[in-house]
């Protein structure tokens, strides 16, 4: 119930920000549509620790900041490769183990790998092994170093 309530608050806040109208009638309509979405989400059983990960809200901020820096760095790397020698890239497909036990943690890790240019997660196996495509040796090495893996584990409170 707590999650449903907080989902309602988030949705209603989002509605208010998007609309920019604050007349009573319109706000009531927005509240009603937020309630409707929460009801539908509960019927879909999407209001759980995966669909609405409230517990990650604060630690997530620090992780986002770190990820932002990584994204900028790898963007510059990829830009340099594309400008210098597009035919000189050495792409590779390799496997890396995600150490998170929780599925949400693995998804966060896989999505972070994909979000940084230069590496794309192409598949995940039930035991948590990720299939990753990397554009260059450097981007492959940065995934294999396991730095991001450790940070996601810390975000999930597993290490």
């Amino acid at each position: 119930m707590g999650r449903a309530l907080s989902l309602f608050m988030v949705l209603f806040g989002f509605w208010l920000l998007m609309s920019g109208h604050f007349e009573a009638w319109l706000v009531a309509l927005g509240g009603a549509s937020a309630v409707l979405v929460v009801v539908i989400a509960r019927r879909l059983e999407a209001v759980d620790h995966e669909g609405h990960p409230l517990h990650l809200a604060w630690k997530g901020m620090a992780y986002w900041l770190w990820l932002l820096v990584e994204i900028v760095k790898s963007n510059i790397d990829v830009a340099r490769v594309i400008l210098a020698s597009p035919a000189g890239v050495s792409p590779s497909l390799f496997r890396v183990k995600a150490s998170q036990k929780d599925e949400l943690g693995r998804v966060i890790y896989a999505n972070s790998i994909t979000l940084t240019p230069g590496t794309v997660t192409a598949g995940m196996e039930p035991d948590g092994t990720l299939l990753v495509h990397a554009l260059t040796e450097g981007s492959r090495a940065s995934v294999e170093s396991g730095d991001m893996d450790r940070r996601v584990s810390r975000l999930m409170g597993e290490s």
Partner: peptide, 16 residues
């Protein structure tokens, strides 16, 4: 870039 998998990295730059 040579193939669809590496082209994905270029498209990812635009998105981020």
């Amino acid at each position: 870039l040579p193939d669809v998998f590496s082209r994905m990295h270029g498209a990812g730059m635009t998105d981020t």
